[in-house]
Design a binder for these strands. Structure first.
Lengths: 115, 115
DNA sequence: TAATTTTGTAACTGATTGGTTACAATTAGG
DNA sequence: CCTAATTGTAACCAATCAGTTACAAAATTA
């Protein structure tokens, strides 16, 4: 089964869960109380999130505490960032191509706004 | 059918396609030449990408030219960015919670009940 | 005009997904 | 010790997904 962070955050419920788990550690029951779906459904979502490192589990007695590990979003951040200049400079694909061509041939001034 | 940018970029082939379409405009046949899957499969992927604005279509005669519109990644970027401080400051969820508690108690309670 | 190229899409298929209910195991509390 | 609470997971189901092959339509070209 494919289990990467891109697939993990594709589901809106899972995004809501990791949003929730950033504010405080919560037990599965506490998480499920925020949603309309059943506790097992939440449990499966959290399992998927944990499998790609987005959620960390701490067991204490019979209870489990989940918390978000946003560091695992780094992969997504990195992937998106490589395209950031494209839309922040308001260049489309062709525009970028032409801009880089002009830069090579004529040293045309090129806004290089970084993140 | 759910068609948001998070679901669109969940598939590795689709991520490869929009990567490809950032370098130059390509026809569906040209795109398909880069992959092992069939042309109709690529066509369906591109349709999904176009439906959420990640790909822009230009028809010229019988041919179609696709190009990436990375601006549509803004939604993902925005979502990820709201968590960036968490992992860049090397704070875990509990650490952030305590840090915000230490300031003032003016953060509103989180409500995320779905309907 | 006739044949070829380019493309989208319908129809189908097997795998995956997101959900459910039911049940078992472990811990807590009387 | 017995009962209740907390949790994971198995078994199942309908819907969606990602792929295929087959075909039709429109534009090019010989």
């Amino acid at each position: 089964m494919r289990r990467d962070v891109f697939q993990a955050i594709a589901d809106p419920n899972r995004r809501a869960i990791i949003e929730l788990l950033g504010h405080s550690q919560l037990t599965p029951n506490a998480v499920a109380a925020h949603f309309d779906v059943s506790r097992p459904a939440i449990s499966k979502h959290i399992k998927i999130l944990a499998e790609c490192g987005l959620v960390i589990v701490t067991q204490r007695g019979r209870e489990r505490y989940y918390e978000a590990n946003y560091k695992a979003l780094g992969e997504v951040s990195k992937w998106v960032d490589q395209y950031r200049n494209f839309w922040e400079n308001k260049l489309d694909a062709l525009g970028n191509f032409l801009a880089s061509e002009a830069k090579v041939h004529k040293s045309k001034p090129h806004k290089n706004k970084q993140k």
